[in-house]
Design a protein around this nucleic acid. Structure first.
Lengths: 335, 335
DNA sequence: CTGAAAGCGCTTACAG
DNA sequence: CTGAAAGCGCTTACAG
């Protein structure tokens, strides 16, 4: 007997449950983990009763210690202030919880050094998997990728291996859809404002847009490509839009590779006395739910970020089963 | 000797470092944990070299197992889609990381059952502390509070114990400041639109506002109190603002207890043909950074959410030291 | 100044 | 059908 009294206020352990049920901890462990075929019905009932009475919950640390693996999944995100990112984070957290996992959220601020620091810290936590929501190129990510470690990439592909498991949308298709829309409406001249091209998503959106226009015979001088330095999309839009106001042939319609960029462009255009969409049509990509409330002048390619969680978890489960989940492209909606 | 070869690709353990340095794991453990006064300078150097060569990082699970406590802190938040919440989450995460902790983020959706589920799950992870960002009343929170467990409450106080450690602003003062501003500008009639009053923050903002006006002799019929059911602040503002349009004596200025409520009210007022701020002045509380970009018509009490992290961590460290951090009120800015 | 040993809670291969 | 025992990586009280 291991001591018949239960320390009140403290969590019950396997040993205490075993004590109360009058069986060994091995038996309790098996039953708690759903392996009931190897014990008599009576034993199972006694153990379950003891579990209920003591309010037993397995200690995840003990389990992780033994299995050399925790039930924690890390999500490395570039910027939680971006509503698209926090929506993905929330939906992923919920989907993971449903399958018994816990999500740790880390903000890399799009910095390679922070990303590497987190990657090491998460390894020390024995996290089950790491999800990169907007990965940046970094030494540790490259090294781990080359060593065959499998991560899941969301929105942006692995900068060191484009074929790594991916969840996102067909970004080229989204850019192309906006181009087709502009052509169909006879808008010209045109422009695109994009953020940094180190992101595969931004690149694909930009070139999906440009390629359609080029193939349609739009002259290069009728298509402005604009950007601005920095990470702040609002500011990028604001800075880049100055070129629209100053252009000798002012663009009639502009693709912004994110809604935040569109907000920034709108502010500058408005301050310059131009009306949106009467003087300049702005189209964003994201479909921020706040748009109907605060930016009714904006149309946007709607990405179903709130649906990412289940798809992300499904991809993770394939990875855990030793499979390659490949790329999962979710449908976007426009127009 | 425990085996002289290091498994490549796998993390080095204390034993491997000890092996390489030719000392015991006790000695390595002490040195790694900064207790260097109990070893010779030469030993310390040898151990540090071995640590560097093997790239040793302590296994946090092993440590948590032994100490019955992890370096994980849980943040339970009501709604990550609210930018104020994600800003606090990001700043807390960064501040915790600086002191060697890891933050786990959980979205309770303001639901008591989910809050309790997370509370139990986090206990099973041996989390060091739980931070409630917008707590709701719930059985497990009540039980834990009554049992003397110490949590940190942010924005909203512990619904079961108002004296529990708290980080936030002087919400009564914020409401009062807006009232004083309206009085100074001669605005009348007035209104307040608030969300659910189960939150101490919302209650305090509302009554801080009302009390000042009442004391100033404003007649009750000159002060509308508006709300609407549900959790969605945008929708609450939209629904509640209908009463403003319909009022026989239309309010000239309105306090909204959150910026999101103000966005909702603005939409309805605009759709009804009223101009903000020319016909109706709206004042929010939050100071969402997006306001200058998308809601230049809104003035707002600015709460320094991005500064919450360090204050939250400071309060946690006091709790860990066995002290009572009491309440920490950060400065808000208005006008 | 240093190390052997116990033990945190769990899972699991093995023995019966 | 059930249990004793090993061991995951670490910290720490204790012995020398």
């Amino acid at each position: 007997m291991r001591g018949t009294s239960t320390k009140s206020g403290s969590r019950a352990s396997l040993a205490e449950v075993a004590d109360r049920a009058g069986v060994s901890i091995s038996t309790v462990s098996r039953i708690v983990n759903g392996i009931v075929g190897r014990a008599s019905a009576e034993t199972v009932a006694r153990v379950r009763q003891a579990v209920d009475e003591l309010g037993y919950r397995p200690d995840r640390i003990g389990r992780a210690m033994r299995q050399r693996q925790s039930n924690v999944v890390a999500l490395l995100a570039p910027n939680l202030a971006n509503p698209a990112m926090s929506t993905i984070a929330a939906s992923t957290e919920e989907a993971l919880r449903r399958v018994g996992h816990v999500m740790v959220l880390c903000d890399t601020h799009d910095r390679a050094d922070l990303q590497d620091e987190y990657l090491a810290a998460m390894a020390a936590q024995l996290v089950r998997s790491v999800i990169f929501l907007g990965a940046v190129a970094s030494p540790a990510l490259r090294a781990a990728s080359e060593a065959g470690e499998v991560f899941l990439f969301v929105n942006r592909r692995n900068p060191h291996d484009e074929r790594a498991p991916f969840v996102g949308i067909d970004n080229r298709g989204a850019g192309a859809a906006v181009a087709a829309h502009f052509l169909a409406n006879g808008h010209a001249p045109l422009a695109v404002i994009h953020s940094d091209h180190s992101s595969s998503a931004v690149r694909d959106r930009t070139y999906g847009f440009i390629d359609v226009l080029t193939k349609a015979g739009i002259a290069p001088e009728m298509l402005m490509r604009l950007s601005a330095p920095g990470d702040d999309h609002l500011d990028i839009g604001y800075q880049a839009a100055a070129a629209i106001v100053a252009a000798p042939q002012r663009p009639r319609a502009v693709l912004c590779t994110s809604d935040l960029i569109a907000y920034g462009a709108h502010r500058l255009l408005t301050e310059a006395g131009l009306a949106v969409p009467d003087d300049v049509v702005l189209v964003g990509i994201d479909g921020n739910p706040i748009n109907p409330w605060l930016a009714p002048w904006l149309s946007s390619v709607v990405i179903p970020y709130e649906d990412y969680g289940p798809v992300i978890v499904d991809s993770l489960e394939r990875i855990w089963a030793g499979e390659d989940p490949g790329e999962r492209l979710l449908p976007y909606a426009f127009g």
